[in-house]
Computed example of a mutant assay.
Amino acid sequence: MANTRRKAAWEYFGEELKRRREEAGLTQTQLGDRVFVSGGYIGQFEQAFRKPQLDVAIRIDEVLRTGGFFERTWHKLIRERRFASYFEEVAELERTATKICDFAPLVVPGLLQTEAYNRALMTEDDPFATEEQMQDTIDARMERAQILADATRPEFWVILHEHVLRTPVGGPSTMADQLDRIVARIRERTVLVTIIPYAKGAHASMNGMFRLMEFDDAPPVAYTETEFSGTLIDEPAVVKRAQRTYDLLRVAALSPEASLELIASAAEDHRRCVRTT
């Protein structure tokens, strides 16, 4: 899978570093001294335990006289990493899923996000991200969403908490457009969205998003995510518990018709805020 291939690529980076360092007649400590890191740190690069920063890769090229090999390889490996490492395998699996069920208590799921909404989330998450970095992430997410336009698209079920509709990510105009996108997807019948209203109170599963995926030729999996990490789960007993939790969330949600009405109403509320400012 994606994680395995990426690990192998960084192992190759480390093997090349070791080979070229030894050809130059340098120990790890000697190379470390020349590029302003410890010898132990060089050892971690060579064993693919750690990944060097770009400036270190550039200094390694200068010291070992490798003609920019390590800088070019670094750029290639970083650029190809379009998703967080913990999400890479999930992004691959969703392309072959026959059914995807998302629960999102805080933000709109990635497959339904508009570009402006996604950009607003990233700006809040990392205000120092460059425009190029942000655009790469946005492009990757928009490409993922293309699975909903395919003839073989999966059944896509989404449960949102009302909180997602009311929080003005990117401002009221961005939110109105985002909710309009969801309404359009519902009416196109590419997704079935239901809402857990504030009136239902808290739910035990509302501390983070989670996803269920089913496949024609493989067992189902579950995926849970928090702010800084995600976990893909294929243990049958745990997946079964996650499926039961999703069923309970579905019971707590409004009907599809009532949910559509609430989403459209929330979009109009945000538009009203735009008109009054």
Rank of each mutant, 00 (worst) to 15 (best):
D102F: 09
V63L: 14
F83Q: 03
V35R: 07
T66I: 09
G32L: 01
T29H: 10
F45D: 04
T114V: 07
F45L: 15
A57T: 01
E115D: 05
A91K: 04
G25K: 12
I42C: 02
A24C: 02
R119D: 02
R72Q: 12
E71Q: 10
F36Q: 14
L31E: 11
G39K: 06
L54F: 11
R119I: 05
I42A: 02
M122Y: 04
F45C: 10
R59C: 03
L106W: 13
V56E: 02
K51V: 13
K51I: 12
E46P: 02
G40H: 08
E88S: 13
D102R: 07
Q44H: 12
R72I: 00
R95P: 00
G110C: 13
Y86E: 10
D61Y: 03
T73M: 14
I60W: 11
R65Y: 01
E94R: 06
R59G: 06
D55C: 02
V37Y: 10
A24T: 00
F49R: 14
T27F: 08
A84T: 01
E124L: 14
D55V: 09
F36V: 08
P109F: 07
V107R: 10
F87D: 00
R81Y: 00
L26K: 13
P109L: 11
Y41I: 14
W74A: 08
A91C: 12
P105C: 00
D125V: 14
T73C: 09
D125F: 15
G110F: 11
L112S: 02
A24S: 06
A48G: 04
F49H: 12
F36E: 12
V108N: 00
L54E: 10
E62H: 09
D125A: 15
R59H: 10
Q30R: 14
G68A: 10
Q30D: 14
A104P: 03
L112I: 06
G32F: 01
R95A: 04
E88G: 13
H75R: 14
K51E: 15
V63T: 12
Q47G: 13
T66D: 02
K51T: 11
F45A: 09
K76S: 03
F36I: 07
Q53E: 14
F83T: 00
P105K: 01
I100Y: 04
T98P: 03
W74N: 09
H75I: 09
L64P: 01
G40N: 14
V90P: 00
R79H: 10
S38E: 05
I60F: 05
D102Q: 09
L31K: 13
R82S: 06
D61I: 01
G68D: 07
T29A: 15
H75E: 08
T123G: 03
E80S: 15
F69T: 04
I42K: 03
G67H: 04
G68T: 10
I60M: 13
C101H: 13
I60P: 06
R34H: 08
Q44S: 07
P52F: 03
Q53C: 04
Y41Q: 14
G25T: 09
P127T: 11
I58S: 07
K99T: 12
F45V: 11
P105H: 00
T73P: 02
D126K: 04
E115V: 12
T66M: 09
